[in-house]
Simulated assay, not measured.
Amino acid sequence: MWGYMRPIKKAVFPVAGLGTRFLPATKVVPKELLAIIDRPLLQYAVDEAIEAGIEQFIFVTGRGKGAIEDYFDMAFELETTQIGRGKDISALHGTRMQPGQAVFLRQQEPLGLGHAIWCARHIVGDEPFAVLLPDEFMYGSPGCLAQMVAAYERLGGNLLCTLEIPIDQTSSYGVVDPGERHGAVVEIKGLVEKPAPGTAPSNLILPGRYILQPEIMQVLGRQEKGAGGEIQLTDAMAALIGSQPFNGLTFAGQRFDCGSKAGFIEANLALALDREDIGDHILAYAADLIATIQKGRGLSRDVA
């Protein structure tokens, strides 16, 4: 165990990205508010954090992301109207934060994930904290961060979620140089951000969940640029390896890369099939659709 075991009560959500892969929808709707069935991606990440015991939510936004702040506010007109009509508003309960529970701050320049997290340094202070990337949708029970907090309470230090992928896909991610393994936990000896094809130290990547010690902010404060000319979180973590413990935990659940269109559709389909209210209908529709495609008819693109 390393150092004083301080509980994880704060979480940072970097949500300043432009979401260009989902244009034109993201011209007016932040990608983090795109819905998986009927709940925004960001709501799933917040619910995951709440389950893990997080008490303060730090949203690092950018220009044009005011809808995120509105989403977690009270919708007075909507709620009053629905209550007046005798309608159930329980679906809105998870969207309203307690006063002072949510903090919104802005990343003025798109200088990378590490820079976005550094923008939250004064709110984080000298406490360990979690980082959740909402477009990495982690689906399981208990949630990913809850699994990580349970492991952190045994191990301390810095704890990163890890995931195995095909080795030929590692050039798009932060990649782990692994040490000893103990069940779902692996020692992290090094980290490489977006290694060139054929140079990755393993097929173990970082899919967007972190528990970090506050000293990471000092390293990020150097403003050193890495891959893509951006300030990379992976590089800052790598600089701390050796002075602080770093371990990885393999998430027991399913991950969807909702930063891609294919992953976003996969998440919608998987969750729809898992829902009691619509699962049977979607399964029947999918079976009919597959049968139609296999017959070579495809879908009509004609518009009347």
Rank of each mutant, 00 (worst) to 15 (best):
A227D: 02
S90M: 01
F59Q: 01
A236Q: 12
V219R: 12
D135T: 10
S243E: 11
I68H: 00
A272Q: 03
K31M: 04
V176Y: 03
S202T: 07
H115F: 09
A196V: 13
R301Q: 08
T199A: 02
V185H: 07
V192S: 10
P195I: 13
G140H: 01
I117K: 11
V175P: 06
I167C: 10
K87Q: 13
C119Y: 04
G86T: 02
E77C: 07
M148F: 08
I231W: 07
A151V: 15
V46Y: 03
L33K: 07
L159R: 13
L271P: 01
A116H: 01
V15T: 11
E109Y: 12
F76Q: 09
V28W: 05
V12R: 01
K87G: 12
L204H: 05
M5I: 12
A200C: 06
Q213E: 15
G84N: 08
M1P: 12
P207E: 01
M97D: 06
G140S: 10
M97A: 08
A146V: 05
P99Q: 05
D88M: 03
G248F: 14
F13H: 01
Q107R: 03
L18S: 15
P195H: 10
K31N: 06
I58C: 01
Q98H: 11
F59I: 07
L42T: 00
Q101N: 00
I188K: 04
R63P: 10
A25K: 10
L299D: 03
V28S: 10
G226E: 05
G242Q: 05
V185A: 14
A11F: 04
Y44W: 12
P178Q: 08
T250G: 08
E55S: 13
G226C: 07
I165E: 11
S172R: 15
H93F: 14
P207L: 03
N268W: 01
L289Q: 09
Q294P: 00
V186P: 11
Q213H: 06
Q218V: 14
A236M: 13
I37R: 04
A267V: 00
G221A: 08
G94Q: 09
Y139I: 06
C144Y: 00
I282F: 14
M5A: 13
R181N: 00
S171I: 02
F246T: 07
L78Q: 14
